[in-house]
Design a protein around this nucleic acid. Sequence first.
DNA 1: GTGAAAGCGCTAACAT
DNA 2: ATGTTAGCGCTTTCAC
Lengths: 331, 331
Amino acid sequence: MSVTSFDVARLAGVSQATVSRALRDMRGTSEATRRRVREAARQLGYVPRQTARSLATSRTRRIGVVIGELGNPFYAALLDPLIARLHERGYLAVVVHDDDVSELDCEPLLDGSLDGAVLATVRAGSAAPEELGRRGVPFVLVNREQAGKWGDVSVADNRAGATLAAELLLGLGHRRIGMIGGPPDTSTARARTEAFRDALAAAGVALSPGLVVHGAFDLATGSDGFDRLMGAPRPPTAIFCANDVLAIGALHRARSSGVDVPSQVSVVGFDDIPLASLAQIGLTTVSADLRTMAVTAVDLLLERLADPALGQRRVLHAATLVRRATHAAAP
Amino acid sequence: MSVTSFDVARLAGVSQATVSRALRDMRGTSEATRRRVREAARQLGYVPRQTARSLATSRTRRIGVVIGELGNPFYAALLDPLIARLHERGYLAVVVHDDDVSELDCEPLLDGSLDGAVLATVRAGSAAPEELGRRGVPFVLVNREQAGKWGDVSVADNRAGATLAAELLLGLGHRRIGMIGGPPDTSTARARTEAFRDALAAAGVALSPGLVVHGAFDLATGSDGFDRLMGAPRPPTAIFCANDVLAIGALHRARSSGVDVPSQVSVVGFDDIPLASLAQIGLTTVSADLRTMAVTAVDLLLERLADPALGQRRVLHAATLVRRATHAAAP
DNA sequence: GTGAAAGCGCTAACAT
DNA sequence: ATGTTAGCGCTTTCAC
């Protein structure tokens, strides 16, 4: 078929094994033969077959990235630095689409075609971490986490972040506060909702059940949630959204229904995705530093590949408040 | 190491070859043994090694997707349906990052680890198409194209789209019109700019060189371009942007510099990325139907894998005008 | 420093 | 219908 290391060997007048060694600059090959081999390889346009190499070494230099719909700007914002970092460190990203509703098919992660995996969409009931752990596939959880004895973790300090949001709104004099939460089986939605509720409670403010809605982390949930909250008998003067996508959905509906933000109602998000900083949006939000979170996840995983004996690690990224244009004092 | 088809064979009391056949439901295996083999495989948690399979068959069920920074919402909007479609058809996407400035490293596309490639970022001088073509790696160009004797093509009808934009603005009475173009070595920027210029000329309106700026397809170029155009001695009353990202950058600057769109200046984009339809943006643009373009690209490629003798094909997707809130009659 | 040879775990052609 | 055997194209001992 196409050109193999045997062809290169023949042209260079050496054995196939020497070609293999020379091309990988292994010690135990003279500079002279290296040059001859390299020249022969160049002449023939030889590219080592990765599949053969993988079969022989059990390493593929490919990492699986399990992530949701990229139409969701949050996932796009997360995937970007993941891919960039993997690329920098000499790995290719194999994207495994997880629609976040049907159970993930783990087989592509277990068939030996990957050196490890980055899981960005685990839920409370996800089987993948347990499955990968038992089979010895190294992985890291990013963004969302799940208790378990395997896998490193790189997540935002969601509790601290939600507390910052609560303190901002309380400081602005808000007392009737609503929340648009995410899926309760995600660690992010859970931690953010609970910490926000706790922080309000600490100030003697209740997060009234009638002013809390839940749904998927998407624009529609944000829009509909905004409607529901503002349609309540006594609507809130501020809304905390469990992530930016929800918040942007809420702002969308605010605009189309003639509610002014922030004079009538404040809106605060979480994540600080790139969209949030667009002039037209100017969302006040909690920054989780997505880029650092992603880079850390990749680094944790690659360190583990280098040293499988490493203990389980969990990196919590500090959250900071980003004040833009969607918050104001309570009316 | 881990469990192989030999282990399954031993447990099921058959030969390894029979395991291979049974698990793939090949004709020439009795239903009884299939059941036994499947049961043994289940018991052992056997997953066929993809690398071994690939080495034996020269097929990997993986497609490379060469694409730019996903921080750019256009690429995210394009990658989403590409991945989804590949997934639907049983393929995994291996994302090969192309930073759009340094020369792409083709090796991952040539090392036999991919059945084919989708190229989304070709430029006039890109070597990849020629390289892949010569080596017999099937590929498809999506979004941007390049002349050449290999590879199928799935692109928008950029000329027709730009003509629609010109007609819209002319119809609104604009005569002093500016343009923010993209990189001149991309087929999209080129076709859109030229067709726009031609359409204006046909109406006796000149696209004055002083009112045309070029740059990368990013927000910064849109912002800076807007500044430059509006700072001209006689600023335009309408600006056509070669894509939505540029247009959103322009809108961003318009807002922060107190220029009202569309009463003072109209802005029209191209692509209709999801962002364009956000209420806060409401960009009037030309829809290229990204999703269909992506799905078509994948289908063209997979058809070619099934039948390599197929002639070269080029699918042009109709462009339509999407009227939102950034266009108005000339002041 | 280099060559010979034995795998890696499958698929597929060839027997039976 | 099933077993035997020969690859696929590398990496990696083990000799020399």
